[in-house]
Structures are given as structure tokens and as C-alpha cells.
């Protein structure tokens, strides 16, 4: 038995994962979701924006991680829509402008006036250098929108010269350029409040900046998006996916525990010692 538990075939594990992922999506369980401190802070700081405030929204993710990042972007954009603020969308990721179009549409911004209430400035190459250039000269760095129209013709861009003229920056970014680059190039000089959305694996990397209050709020992965949807009283895609994520985590933990129990039993039984180690090495080839 212990030997079998030490070398569960990978096909079984894949099938089990598929079941625990698809099952709750088809028939939700409704596991309660607790609001984390980072999400609550992000919500509070965005909620404190006054009507007419100008917010820069960085669509710094790509289609690959859109499944995790897009629900964050849509939830925050929906919140911004209720606050009657002006949103300047831009991206330091090549595919960001297309994702911005979709997110603006999904959050209902297309009913507002383009150029006056919101704008999509497109993409600029250069990573952290481009973030620095944007901070010191917004219209110089983004002189046209994603369709090539001059930004000087947009009322929303009037009075925006540097990052100091912006009331808040929100970036949804799984990598670089991301929150760290905005802290170094924007917050350190202009002190513009910064809120970010990152994948769950990147929370640890950004945590020092959050503790130092250089980042005012943080959404971590799909749970962050789900929590934000709940704070907005508008459960969406992320809340629906939370049951599946919970069960997937539980499956991984169960497999790890089973494997280690099997290890303990195989050690205590001299008979299975040699076969167990063989099984273990077979497991390594999975």
C-alpha cells in the first residue's frame, strides 16, 4: 500500500485535478471567501477617490496570464466607473492595449465618452526606462493613443504633464515592468499613490513595498479579484473560480500528505524498504 502511494501515476493525478477543477465550475459549492487586508486596503484607497480624479491604469499583463489578471482589472474598472473618475489606460506590455480594449468594454466604460472620461494610450517599449519616461513626461511619452490620434486633442489629458498631475496609479502586472518599477520610477519621485494587482506567486516579491506603504493596496491573484468582486457586491468570474481553486489546493495538500505518510510507513517496514526506494525513483520520473 505504502509503495503504491509513493508512486501514484501522473495520469491519475491529472484526472483528479481535472475533476476538482471542472466539478465546482459546473456546480459551485459556495465556499465562503474572507477579505484579505491587501484587497481591503486597495478597495478603501480607490473608494476614497473624488469625482473627476485622474487615474492611470496600467494594463501590464499579456493574454497568457489574463485568466488571473483580467478579473482584477475588470473588478477595479467597475469600481472606478461608480466613482465617476477619469481613467487613462496605458501599457508597458506589447499586448496590453488589446486587453485594455476588452477590459474597458467588459467593465462598461464604453458607455462613457472616449477621450473625455477614459482613454487608451497604447503601448510603449522600454520596460522600466519607459515607466521613468512616462512619469517625467506623460504627453511626450504617450503622444498618441493606441489608434494613433494625438493625445493633445483629448480633454482628459489636459493638465497632465508628469506623474504628479495624476491622483492614483493602478497597475495590473504579473512581471516586469510591474509594481516594483512604478515604486522606483514614479512613487519615489512623485509620491503618486500606487495600487497594484499581481499574480498569487508574486505577492511575496511585492510584500516589502506594501509593508513600507509605498504600495497602498494589493490584489493577489484570482482570490484578490474574487475578494474585490465581493466588496463591490458584484460576484463575477473570479468568485465562480474560487471553489475550484480551493479544491485544487486541497488536492495538492492531500497528495503531499499521502506521499509523506507512505514514506514514513515504508521506512518503518524493512520489507518494503528496497521496493519503496525503487518506487520513489520511479516517481521522480513522473
Amino acid at each position: 500500500m505504502a509503495q503504491r502511494l509513493q508512486s501514484i501515476p501522473k495520469t491519475w493525478m491529472y484526472v483528479l485535478l481535472l475533476v476538482v477543477l471542472v466539478g465546482p465550475l459546473l456546480k459551485p459549492i459556495g465556499i465562503p471567501i474572507k477579505i484579505s487586508e491587501g484587497t481591503q486596503s486597495a478597495y478603501d484607497v480607490i473608494d476614497s477617490l473624488t469625482p473627476g480624479s485622474k487615474v492611470v491604469f496600467g494594463f501590464d499583463y499579456s493574454p497568457g496570464n489574463a485568466a488571473e489578471m483580467e478579473p482584477q482589472a475588470i473588478a477595479i474598472l467597475k469600481h472606478l466607473l461608480t466613482k465617476d473618475v477619469k481613467v487613462i489606460g496605458l501599457s508597458f506590455q506589447a499586448q496590453g492595449p488589446m486587453l485594455a480594449v476588452k477590459a474597458f468594454e467588459a467593465a462598461g466604460w464604453t458607455e462613457k465618452e472616449y477621450g473625455t472620461d477614459y482613454v487608451n494610450l497604447g503601448y510603449r517599449a522600454g520596460g522600466q526606462g519607459a515607466v521613468a519616461a512616462f512619469a517625467s513626461d506623460v504627453p511626450g511619452t504617450f503622444n498618441t493613443d493606441y489608434q494613433g490620434k494625438s493625445v493633445s486633442s483629448f480633454p482628459i489629458m489636459q493638465g497632465v504633464k508628469t506623474a504628479a498631475d495624476i491622483d492614483m496609479i493602478i497597475t495590473i502586472a504579473p512581471g516586469t515592468p510591474g509594481p516594483e518599477d512604478y515604486v522606483r520610477q514614479v512613487y519615489s519621485t512623485y509620491k503618486t499613490p500606487l495600487v497594484c494587482g499581481v499574480p498569487a506567486v508574486a505577492i511575496t516579491q511585492v510584500a516589502p513595498y506594501v509593508q513600507a506603504q509605498q504600495i497602498k493596496g494589493i490584489l493577489g491573484g484570482l482570490p484578490g479579484a474574487a475578494e474585490y468582486e465581493l466588496l463591490m457586491n458584484q460576484p463575477g468570474k473570479a468568485v465562480a473560480a474560487m471553489d475550484a481553486q480551493s479544491l485544487a489546493h486541497l488536492l495538492i495538500v492531500a497528495l503531499i500528505i499521502l506521499r509523506n505518510i507512505a514514506n514514513v510507513f515504508s521506512k518503518s517496514s524493512p520489507k518494503t524498504q528496497s521496493t519503496a526506494s525503487a518506487g520513489s525513483s520511479a516517481g521522480r520520473d513522473v
Binding site: K10, M13, L17, A248, L255, I256
Partner: peptide
Amino acid sequence: AFYIVTAAYRSFSA
């Protein structure tokens, strides 16, 4: 996700 499951099962062997 699928690789994470098998990798966690193999790696977290105390």
C-alpha cells in the same frame, strides 16, 4: 497547474 500537482507530489517528500 498539472505540472505543479505532480511536481509538488514528488518534491515535498520530507
